[in-house]
Design a protein around this nucleic acid. Structure first.
Lengths: 135, 135
DNA sequence: TCACTGTATTAACACATATAATACAGTTGA
DNA sequence: TCAACTGTATTATATGTGTTAATACAGTGA
């Protein structure tokens, strides 16, 4: 389910948090699905239960999962999870763009950049047809 | 020149690095201008010279400043500094946008978002005139 | 030469991370 | 009811990074 990288300098609880967060956001684990218990996950990853607990606690405080004491931890409603995550990404986008603007970079450069990304990301339509250039 | 925040959880050497980096990138300190010596900066900020040295070393390894042993540290050529920093920001922009795309967010939403930012950032023209909507 | 500069090394301490060993209370099903 | 799960909390210990401290050495320039 999750793969740890012990060469990574980031704290383990953060790696667990990020990895699990991606599974939740991507929908790989579904709404209201039960996550492995703290102890089970700790055994699987061969790390301490306290470390897992910390990752779960932070994911819960950010809204990605919810916990029923005595029962387990579950994935929050998909639409909610998706929204809070996209919001955080948009805030990040704003921040970076604002800094580029303050350095005199024109908006057109950024937009061009995004368009190229989009073409690279979704090569579903025939690239010889230039029909989606204006979006 | 630099203001430290001891409540900030980030390491001091990182705060120094960021603050100095911004001064360099913004042009507040000019190309080939001499930076305060390691010991001088340490005295001013009331911290250890080793901590400053680390900040300087990393800034140098990333190209923002250059050092002449026995003389001092100096700001790298403005055009170069500006380029490597903008590049790093564009990479950040790409990364965020790619993730939003992978979550199904349309390119148009991101572009709209950037346009609103731009308007907020440069309120020089009369906002009642809607002449710059298409950039 | 003398007073600067950057650089390097070693030791000591504080703090965050992580492990370890327990303990307690809620839930569930036999 | 009882046993085996669950989440949660606490305390102690080990380790690594950040930071300070005290030196030392070599290059620069007046």
């Amino acid at each position: 389910m999750i793969q740890l990288n012990h060469r990574d300098s980031r704290p383990i609880y953060e790696q667990v948090k990020d990895a699990l967060g991606k599974l939740v956001v991507s929908g790989a684990v579904r709404q209201d699905e039960k996550l492995p218990s703290v102890r089970e996950m700790a055994t699987t990853l061969a790390i301490n239960p306290n470390t897992i607990q910390r990752a779960y606690r932070e994911l819960e405080s950010e809204g990605y999962i919810y916990t029923i004491p005595g029962k387990g931890s579950y994935v929050s409603p998909q639409s909610y999870v998706s929204n809070i995550y996209k919001e955080s990404l948009y805030r990040q986008l704003d921040k970076t763009a604002e800094e580029l603007l303050s350095l005199g970079e024109p908006l057109s450069s950024m937009v061009d950049r995004l368009k190229k990304l989009s073409g690279k990301e979704m090569p579903h339509r025939d690239p010889s047809k230039k029909s989606d250039e204006n979006l």
